[in-house]
Each structure stands twice: as C-alpha cells, then as structure tokens.
C-alpha cells in the first residue's frame, strides 16, 4: 500500500497528451467485452419492465398463443381499462398525490424549524436531540404499529388519510432534521450577523435569510419525502381499510391473486403501479441521483 502511494507522481511520462484522452483512443478488445457485460446487465435489469409493458396490451388469448415475449398482435386495452375502473384509479392517484404532497410540505417545515434550533441556535443537548430523531427514523414501523392503530381509532382518525399524513410527517421530518441540522451547522455566520445588525429578529432571519439560501437542499428534501411517502406500504395498508382513501400501492396490492384478475389484467395492474414512479424518475432524475449521494456522504 505505502509502496504504491509513495511512487513519485513525476514518473508519469511527460510530453504526451493528457492521460484521459490517450485512454479514450486506445480501446482494447477487453474493454469491449466489459462494456458488453455492463450492457447485458442493464438489459437484464430493464427486462421485467419490458415484459410488463408488452403484456399489458395483450388479450389473455393473445398471451396464451403468442407467449410473453411476442409483441401484441393487436393493441388490447381491456385489461388496463378494467383494472383502471375497478380500482377507480384516478381516485387512488389523487389520494397518493395529496397525502404525499402534504407530508412533503409539512415535513420540510418541521425539519426547518428543528434544524434552525439545533444547527443555528445550537441549543444545549443538541447531540441527544439529533440521536432521538435518528432513532425515530431507524425504528421498524412495526414497533409503533399497534399503539398508533389504537390511538388513531380512539381519536377517530383511523381509516382517514390524515392518519397517514400525520404519521409520515413525523417520520420523514426525523430524517430531514438530521440532515438539515448538519447543513445549518455550517451556515455562513457573516450572513446571519449582517441580518442581525440590520435589525432582523430570529423569526425574520429564518424565513428571509436561512430558508431562501438553503432552498436547493429543501427542494431535494421535498422531492424525497414525496417519493418516500408515495412508496410507503405497511402503515397505509393497516390504516386505510376502505377503498375510497387507499393509495396507489395499497389499492394495487390488495387485488393481487383475485379470481377476476387474468394474466394480462395483472400485468396491467403492475404497469399502473410502475408508471407514476417512472414519471417522477424522469422528471427528477438529476435531483434524485445527486440527492442520494448528498445524503450518503453525511
């Protein structure tokens, strides 16, 4: 190891084009083999998506004769339409959008307030407060499930989307607090001092200085909270028992194995579950890949 690191950097031959360019031109056969491997692996990962797309537009008879790999002989929308109407898909879509949207918004506000006190206010005992929030994020939801179920039944919020909104606002903001507190801990002090000299109080500094400056981080959090809440399953499954307030993943999963679901309708149901998240993916691709790496380094 030390022998490797101590090798003089000057040993790199000079007077040649930059190493990157040189490599780019010299593609050995082995490189092509590895590229092919990477592509094959990518196709393997995308393959289930392709199968679902192809087979959602076939009739069961077409599926039986042509098999899963053939393209549909004619476009058949009955499976998709049947499932769409059966679960009242627009309603489920709206439930998901509305709960995930409110959770994302509330959780960001709570995270900002918490992180302002911890990161900028540096309240006493902040390390323990952060540990507490981290614990909340790490706990298995099963450990909270029954008491929450009982509590929400008692106050009459069981089987309403508000139960989901409240619970996930807390769980997501626990992560948000952890992340934002460390971001705010390194907030440029001069900016805050200048604002204080101008006579702004803390509340004004928070909303007029800190929030606008940290907007990029906040928007990443907003997107993440939205998608994470969208993808949640255990608690929505337990709390949303009546059809009209279920979210997309819950509505789709409770119909699996149903007798009325033939092969291609089941495929169509999977497709309807996949599409919304793929749309988010294509819209937010950059934010997502940048965001998860930012979260990881901390």
């Amino acid at each position: 190891m030390s022998a490797l690191t101590n090798a003089p950097a000057g040993a790199v031959p000079t007077g040649e084009p930059a190493p990157k360019r040189r490599n780019r031109r010299r593609r050995r056969p082995a490189d092509w083999v590895i590229l092919a491997l990477a592509i094959v692996f990518g196709v393997l990962i995308a393959f289930p998506f392709l199968l679902i797309v192809i087979n959602s537009f076939k009739s069961p008879a077409d599926y039986a004769t042509g098999g899963p790999l053939a393209l549909p002989t004619e476009l058949y929308f009955d499976g998709l339409v049947n499932f769409w109407e059966r679960v009242n898909f627009p309603e489920k879509l709206w439930n998901s959008i509305y709960t995930s949207g409110l959770v994302a918004l509330f959780a960001v506000v709570i995270s900002v307030l918490n992180a302002f006190a911890i990161g900028i206010g540096r309240v006493r005992g902040r390390t323990w407060i952060i540990v507490l929030f981290l614990l909340a994020n790490m706990l298995p939801q099963e450990a909270l499930l029954y008491p929450l179920y009982y509590m929400f039944k008692e106050v009459g919020l069981y089987n309403t989307t508000w139960a989901i909104i409240i619970i996930f606002t807390v769980i997501q903001s626990a992560f948000g607090t952890y992340l934002l507190a460390s971001v705010y801990g390194t907030f440029p002090k001069e900016v805050l001092e200048a604002a204080a000299l101008d006579g702004a109080n803390r509340w004004q500094i928070l909303w007029r200085v800190v929030v606008p400056i940290s907007r990029p981080t906040l928007s990443v959090l907003l997107i993440f909270f939205f998608i994470w809440t969208w993808n949640e399953f255990l608690i929505p499954l337990t709390f949303l028992v009546s059809n009209d307030n279920q979210t997309v993943p819950v509505a789709i999963s409770v119909l699996q194995g149903d007798r009325l679901m033939d092969v291609t309708t089941t495929s169509a149901s999977a497709l309807l579950g996949v599409i919304p998240t793929l749309i988010f993916f294509f819209i937010f691709q950059r934010t997502l890949t940048r965001g998860i790496t930012a979260g990881a380094v901390k």
Partner: peptide, 11 residues
C-alpha cells in the same frame, strides 16, 4: 424508484 410492493408484483 418503484414502491417495493410494485416491484414485488412485477416479478
């Protein structure tokens, strides 16, 4: 990016 349940349904 898929909800894990939906991934389960696909496979």
């Amino acid at each position: 990016v898929l909800p894990v349940v939906v991934a389960g349904i696909v496979i």
